[in-house]
Design a protein around this nucleic acid. Structure first.
Lengths: 260, 260
DNA sequence: GATAATTTGTTCGTATGTATC
DNA sequence: TGATACATACGAACAAATTAT
């Protein structure tokens, strides 16, 4: 029925019925947001447009938006507008951590892209993680991980060069760390160590991840090892904090995975 | 030998020897920092003082400080000064997560303080975590955790009211969640779920944690259960991101604890 | 709460040395 | 040799944040 598809926002407001105008506007917008009429991440009309549509002063609209922001249904950014809140993606940190599987489980479309690769000497931290001598040659890969085509994280991977010299070429074809490992004889790998902290992003990260102002990044340092327990990858991954939430579940956690 | 204890910074710089002045200054300061002559967290002299000591322009000093900040050896705060970087505390997320034990393992002195408590109805999230019906009565506790007397995290704890009505009183005496649980018959409890994300702090959090400008917080939602697997606590903890790093280690991790 | 002093952050302009074509 | 670009270094003034009074 066509009249049902007309956005609720076009209905008129009632004055003097005991419910403040801003409350009515808030209820209308909240319905639009919760019903999915306004998609997650979508930009709401400007305050001026909303004020015109509802036939009220801009301040009245602002009061409604402030309430929605308090309820975390929208995010308001100075100079840009108001946006429907995007649910944070639950990223499982289990015994096996797989980017694609994690995203698909959340009904997001994963993709990865190679930014570049080179050969470097192992620093203190990388050497310790990979259990090699400092100054050992490592292959370094810079990649971006996307969810639904939008950048989600930037990773710097380190691999022992001797064993994985061909990783960059293979990754360039397969666009997946897991697949590249398999192609190079590592049928399975497990997470042995994870360190998580947070900081503000630098300018390059703001650009690469398309971050809003005042959004921090989560920094995850991880080590993966092959079936024999030999470290095969050390990585530092920078995540957009407003789009991700790490989940550690005891049932299927870091050392009790189902092994699927 | 006394002349060896004179800070290297008092030596004069060489001009026109192929090494830029700011590089020489950076090297001197880096030595002072790495050697421990300047302790972690200690304030460096002001830019003006350093410029005078080295006999150069303030800009030249700033260039050296910028390099040290890039190397994360110092943290510079507008209006306050430059500070020798304080190592981040490694906080282990294992099967058993204990605030005091975690800090003592890092040679920090732990302390906890009760901010307040009240009785509230369970919201959606708390009800789900504690496996009770929404609107079930819960005891809510607000606490602060300190490391070496400095605020590190603010936690909001939720306990099923029926079973733990006396928790606040006991905690007020013992200043420890673990000890309070034991006093109320919960000899042991284990972490069943952990969710981690990050955001910018609000004004109250900046005050409570003594955060520097532009420092994000890590937000950890957790559920702990007793020996029988019954959830006993749901908590939301806000951590100062510049002082903490969460560590998940496969060897003694969320489900493979040593059970000490 | 208001004010002043202190300290870092930013932006001008100017001059010099060095490397490159 | 000259032209050019770039990094270095200095000076002054002002903005912004913090701290002390």
């Amino acid at each position: 029925m066509t009249h049902d598809t007309v956005p609720v926002a076009h209905r008129e407001l009632e004055r003097g019925n005991g419910v403040a105008l801003w409350r009515q506007i808030q209820a209308v917008l909240e319905h639009d947001l919760r019903s999915g009429y306004v998609a997650a991440g979508e930009k709401l009309p400007t305050e001026r447009q909303l004020a015109q549509r509802f036939g009220v002063n801009r301040h009245t609209v602002r009061q409604a938006l402030a309430e929605l922001a308090r309820k975390e249904l929208i995010v308001v950014e100075q100079g840009r507008g108001a946006f429907a809140r995007r649910d944070k993606l639950d990223y499982a940190l289990a015994r096996r951590v797989r980017f694609s599987e994690n995203l698909l489980r959340q009904s997001r479309i994963p993709s990865e892209r190679l930014l570049g690769s080179d050969k470097v000497q192992a620093g203190r931290r990388a050497a310790e993680a990979l259990q090699v001598l400092p100054a050992t040659m490592l292959l370094r890969l810079r990649t971006v991980g996307n969810a639904d085509g939008r950048p989600l994280c930037c990773t710097t991977h380190y691999f022992p060069y001797g064993r994985f010299a061909g990783f960059a070429a293979v990754y360039g074809q397969l666009h997946s760390v897991t697949a590249a490992f398999r192609a190079l004889g590592v049928a399975d790998y497990v997470r042995t160590s994870t360190r998580i902290t947070s900081r503000m992003p630098d300018a390059a990260e703001v650009r690469a991840l398309g971050l809003a102002r005042q959004t921090p990044v989560l920094v995850v340092e991880s080590v993966n090892a092959d079936g024999a327990g030999t470290p095969v990858e050390y990585g530092v991954c920078v995540w957009a904090a407003d789009r991700i939430q790490f989940v550690i579940d005891a049932a299927e956690s870091v050392c009790g995975g189902t092994g699927g």
